[in-house]
Nucleic acid binder design. Structure first.
Lengths: 190, 190, 190, 190
DNA sequence: GATGAATGAGCGTTCATTCAT
DNA sequence: TATGAATGAACGCTCATTCAT
């Protein structure tokens, strides 16, 4: 009986991968435990339920974005560099983590079924939207910035969905290109 | 215990609603049966398995699109009218039956888990993409048409996801407006 | 809707094959119906239940033996010819009908579970035992005849089981040879 | 709700009894669990499926024979004592636990339906056959020994079947007596 | 007599969760 | 804290049987 110290963070990290691959409902506590290197019952020492573990995963991912991505608008760099940085960061997340959009997938799967998740994921997307809007505000009016952020968000979301469905990264590549060029034009108009 | 005849089509119709609300995995045969006014076991007279029933739902929805929407490009009306018709048809589906996102939701939930669904849904989106491309081809070159169709598709998909997540129809409204205006400009350039 | 006339006897005949191949419990009314060329519900016009159908099969097989085999001892032929005739008849049944011993298989499978079958099958084996004993009585005393019949019966039963288990007809061939030689020796001693 | 530990061996033991009484298909996981003092679902901690449990039962019984019975030919005792020992051991199993026919019953019931069982049971009977042949080899040639072992095996099998069917132990008693006497004669001829 | 939709009980199995060790 | 046996509810599915047509 090898006793291995496991902390909540490493469980969260491995859980994210499993949830991403199988979805919420198809993932069993056994799957999560195995990936975390312990047994089913042991998970309950760290998280009170499967739902709580998922919430921790969502929160952890949100926290990561807050720390690494949503701060980009506040960096002391030119607007276009911010756009580029956001794109690079996005691609890292979407490509490296197996190409799935964790938040979107979980949101759609659990909508109407686990309302708590929906609320948390909404908060995440609001932050993301605000992040994008902040960058647009540097080149257009507040109102236009919000509309453009919504358009950008939708394009990215849609591209990620298409990319995932067809297993073709080009959808996201194209979207990022369009978004960059559009921003460039706006920046030049100033 | 009155025995009432039920036909496959009415089961498919009610199943679509349940699947849409709960997702594939959270929907039980019991749920589907109840909605269809039957007992669990009786469903198996019409469909060999839950998976087969879902396939029938997907196919039925695809068939509906083929019949009602994907024919629009071939109608003897001006290009802009086609765009308008497509938008009207889409909104009907997305708002009234919320049937459009059905495909996306099921696709994302069952990706890597039920490959058959993925294949069927890919076929659906390929048809839809081709439908959009066909309309663009009336005003731009083949190559451009395809790229624009991909962008349009992504915008719609993303807008529907955001709409569903935030329960705000404006996302799709905005996307449709953008798409229409973009097409108008292209048409004027000829 | 092709309406086909089916009579009880042809259902019994096809049922015997299915039961022999799959056993009693693994055979469904659907299997039986299909083999009989009609639909599940229609079977109930001919037999009140699966159990009743099986009883009819057992009775029918017993009747066949009564008519074709158990009369051999009374034929006006020499004792050794009777033994040969019994062996030929046995091999026809065991080899032609897929090599299984229907009565034994069903008996063992349903012992303690469907007492009615056991009773009927016991009656069958009593008749068979008496048939064999009758032939022995032509060459030995009544008491010896019964003992020899029991031995013979056991050897055949065992050989059929081994034959079926190992899918090797030689077990039964060998048993029949032994039985024939033993009888020959007894006949010569008179 | 007291939680009591159960180990695989005790489940196997109780499962053997239930399978023997009801057969494989008529035995439900509920039956097996109840006999083992557990709830249905708890069985799956010890065995992955009903089929795996049955395999464990078969293997366990085979192992018992290997340990207690199939070693008899190698014991440093006279040949006739070996025959007697085999008969005593057989009767213990057949009368007390009725475990001998277990193999035959399951084999016949699951033939063509669960091939894995057939293979395992074939291996068991091959070992048993070899065990009997080994004892015959001490008094006759190799070739004769094999033939006699096959005859002996068939007689025992058949006798056990008849015994079980008619619920009369005399069939097996008689078979054992014949087998012993036959061996005695062979031994005296040397 | 044949059909096939409907029933409802039961099956083997899964799984989130509990808890004594 | 880790274990793993046990729980009990639910699941997808099967099937003997019924019965309106």
């Amino acid at each position: 009986m090898p006793i291995q110290k496991t902390d909540a963070q490493s469980i969260i990290k491995s859980a994210l991968n499993v949830f991403l691959e199988k979805g919420y409902h198809k993932t069993s506590m056994n799957d999560l435990a195995k990936e975390a290197g312990l047994l089913k019952g042991s998970l309950y020492h760290h998280f009170a339920s499967k739902e709580e573990l998922m919430k921790a995963v969502i929160e952890s991912l949100h926290e990561y974005y807050r720390r690494e991505i949503f701060v980009i608008p506040k960096l002391p760099i030119p607007p276009l560099s911010k756009v580029k940085a956001l794109i690079v960061a996005s691609e890292e997340v979407f490509y490296d983590q197996r190409g799935g959009n964790f938040m979107t997938n979980i949101a759609l799967e659990t909508l109407n079924v686990v309302p708590d998740f929906t609320l948390m994921i909404r908060r995440f997307f609001k932050d993301w939207l605000e992040c994008i809007a902040a960058v647009y505000r540097e080149v257009v009016s507040d109102k236009e910035a919000l509309a453009l952020a919504r358009q950008t968000m939708a394009e990215i979301e849609g591209a990620v969905v298409m990319m995932e469905l067809f297993d073709e990264p080009k959808y996201l590549k194209e979207a990022h290109k369009r978004i960059y060029q559009r921003y460039e034009e706006l920046a030049n108009q100033i």
